[in-house]
Design a protein around this nucleic acid. Structure first.
Lengths: 339, 339
DNA sequence: CTGTTAGCGCATTCAT
DNA sequence: ATGAATGCGCTAACAG
């Protein structure tokens, strides 16, 4: 068996609580240098490792936070998660990452699991079929911050990005190149980010007096196949778009690229593309992609700091929504339209 | 405050232990249908969520496993991790992922942290500067399985891939195309996988009677910059290689590609490349890469199952080393050498 | 400066 | 079929 406080205490000949005090190392608790040293020596000798579980139970504080994201394989969330872990590590917090695969049932399960494990707080990019389960958590007074996707009518700390503006910038770029038939490859419909990106798309069209063509808005999910299928549909239209704004992220975009190649089209000669794309790989693709990328580390940082503040402040703090900019990176996947 | 067993018991008018029994749901414990139902009803009403921490303390079983990898941003480890999480979820285990960034100090810290948290087992791709800390964990009788990187002289469950054979296959392919000057872009030296890949490289050279050129073996790490720098060095040599085997994974390979492009060379016309490359992106790169890829999900699966068996078996089981194949995927980054 | 006491929430052994 | 008692390992309030 692993040695406990009691074992260490017995080994030194003091009371367990004394050992505890030494190990907690509170400044103001006066302990004789002698016993202090003896205890530390015994700890080393016995190779004592404190039992975090017991401590958590006693202190009602687990130094654990939960992170719920759709899919950690997505470089967007991976980078955010990694940053949160890093910061957590610095502050002695462990983070438990949960992947929902955009399945709200799973999300609810994870939420309960995390609560059951007594996490000190939760960072979540929710599935957004509904919000009751999120509200429940907040009502339980468990610190929570939303990332990427918020519910506009609930008052909670959140970190988002300026989706609409990003797309408007992208469309503007295309219009200036001469494009008039710009399609929007969506991603999953009901998601906050996507709704806002779509809104930005529509607003930009309006601004440039371009008509909104329903068939030009396609896509139903965030997976490779979703992008592939949707783009095939797009490319089967009688009147092809000359440009695509891909708002569903890396996988969707790769799917789109595959479809485009399969149809024998060239990027950007036949069709231009601007994508929300967060991996390192964009410069190396067949045609280096012009992208909208996120400051993912910053998003992770803001989220973690908000959460930490909420965890550490006894009184409830004023909820804040932080908006992080995106970056427009011009590469080679956009050009003037042919016709 | 969250309701406890006691609250539920009081609400129904029974003893907490009775509630516990109902919730544990052991078959052989006879409980009247009446109280059973009443208790379940109360649980729902109060929205009782069991305290996992307390349970873990009491049962000395946390239903948590630790996964320690170099970097979850690496698609190789990301996919393995994801699969382990998935399987863990099915079996009610939570997994805590730790990233070492190839820093052994961190690895030791994480190991202790995990032990302190009372994980039921650990899966680890170790840094491999040394092995004492790993042996310590095993000596503590904590179930542990090594992935990707093993210590050949310690007897422990492990899952590896056939590194040497993979490289031999790659070199063979290049030789058959007519290459005689084949460089090896290594990755971090002291790592098991890399050592074996290098061994495979050397063996293949020998088999084909090609001389081993020291300058053709480069690379010191797993990052993008490592690949970039190392390849620049390679391309500054008086006698350029006509092909590169990149054994350091995705990032290193991307770095290499960048260096090659910057030197104004073309793939595969000027230089061929075969890479250990695990992301979805390989078909879409400027020249779709001929790669060696891993069955990452399978690796995760094997590792998880080994660990679970070890956790669940009271007596210590016979340690096993499972070797998972790799896949050679021919694309367009290899061709006959120019001269 | 250190020991004593109590209890976090739960599962379990022993009663009844 | 259920209640009572115990303790997992730890911290904290209170004594002294």
């Amino acid at each position: 068996m692993a040695p406990t406080l009691k074992d260490v205490a017995a080994h030194v000949g003091v009371h367990p609580s004394t050992v505890s005090r030494v190990l907690r190392g509170k400044e103001n608790l006066k302990i004789s240098a002698k016993t202090h040293d003896k205890i530390l020596k015994a700890v080393k000798e016995l190779n004592y490792i404190p039992d975090f579980t017991a401590r958590a139970l006693r202190m009602k504080k687990s130094f654990t936070i939960g992170l719920i994201v759709p899919d950690i394989l997505n470089p967007y969330f991976a980078r955010i998660a990694r940053r949160i872990e890093q910061l957590g590590f610095e502050k002695k917090y462990t983070v438990i990452v949960c992947n929902t695969d955009e399945d709200q049932q799973k999300e609810i399960l994870f939420l309960n699991q995390l609560i059951s494990r007594g996490v000190d707080g939760i960072i979540i990019a929710p599935v957004q079929d509904s919000k009751e389960h999120i509200v429940d958590v907040i009502d339980k007074n468990i610190p929570l911050v939303l990332i990427d996707r918020i519910f506009e009518d609930i008052n909670v700390n959140s970190v988002i990005t300026n989706n609409a503006e990003s797309v408007m910038k992208a469309v503007t770029h295309l219009v200036k190149l001469g494009h008039k038939r710009i399609a929007f490859l969506r991603g999953q419909k009901n998601i906050y980010t996507i709704k806002n990106r779509l809104a930005g798309y529509k607003e930009a069209l309006k601004e440039f007096n371009l008509s909104l063509i329903d068939n030009y808005i396609v896509g139903e999910g965030f997976e490779f196949e979703d992008g592939y299928e949707a783009t095939l549909k797009l490319l089967a239209l009688p009147k092809l778009p000359t440009a695509i704004v891909s708002s569903g992220g890396d996988l969707v975009t790769l799917g789109a690229i595959k479809a485009i190649y399969e149809k024998g089209l060239k990027i950007p000669e036949d069709i231009s593309i601007i994508a929300f794309f967060d991996s390192l790989y964009s410069p190396f693709l067949a045609t280096p992609l012009t992208t909208i990328t996120h400051y993912r580390q910053k998003i992770g940082e803001k989220a973690f700091k908000l959460l930490l503040k909420q965890i550490e402040s006894s009184k409830d703090m004023q909820a804040k929504t932080i908006c992080v900019d995106t970056k427009f990176e011009l590469r080679d996947s956009t050009a003037k339209p042919k016709n």
